[in-house]
């Protein structure tokens, strides 16, 4: 077993968006804080810190996770994906991100990184997702600006373009 003592910093290492990263964390440090303060990756937002708002949603080993309900120590040795890894290259948005821009699916943008991670995961797992599946996944997030309609429209359009892309390929 591995025992990390309270009050001391321990090395934490994982793969972040395909690249190995390292830092130091006390056992009680949240993964959301480790990403933002230790690694300087502020794309993952923090709202409620009790799992409800969804702003901090990321992927760990391919599955969705609330970074605020995860210790940095739990992520040691895993593969972590955050919003910073979503755009295919600098200056180019993913299909889903571009659809968000077109449909005004964000206003203040606080909820956006988390919602994009969830919808991106949904569309990877189920490219044929319709409005019901999209609404179901968005129920794990709070957006105080948009009223959700634009988010759903953007996701539906992204699903359609992604289906077309795979059909054409």
């Amino acid at each position: 077993m591995r025992n990390l003592k309270a009050g001391q910093k321990h090395p934490v290492e994982f793969e972040l968006n395909g690249r190995s990263v390292k830092g130091q964390a006390e056992p009680r440090m949240l993964l959301s804080d480790f990403l933002r303060h230790e690694l300087g990756r502020t794309g993952t937002h923090v709202g409620c810190e009790h799992g409800v708002c969804g702003a901090c949603t990321i992927r760990i080993d391919g599955r969705l996770a609330r970074a605020c309900l995860t210790l940095a120590a739990q992520a040691d040795g895993t593969q972590v994906e955050t919003i910073e890894g979503m755009a295919p290259q600098t200056g180019r948005l993913s299909v889903l991100q571009a659809a968000f821009r077109r449909h005004h699916a964000l206003q203040c943008g606080f909820c956006t990184p988390g919602i994009l991670m969830s919808l991106d995961t949904l569309l990877q797992q189920n490219p044929a997702a319709g409005e019901d599946e999209i609404r179901d996944v968005i129920s794990g997030h709070l957006c105080r600006c948009t009223g959700y309609r634009q988010i759903i429209d953007a996701a539906l359009e992204a699903a359609k373009s992604l289906q077309k892309e795979t059909a054409d390929a």
């Binding site: 077993m1 591995r2 025992n3 990390l4 003592k5 309270a6 009050g7 006390e26 056992p27 009680r28 949240l30 804080d33 810190e49 009790h50 210790l71 120590a73 739990q74 040691d76």
Partner: peptide, 10 residues
Amino acid sequence: MKPPPLDYIR
């Protein structure tokens, strides 16, 4: 909204 100091054992 942060956990108290604690040992983490894997």
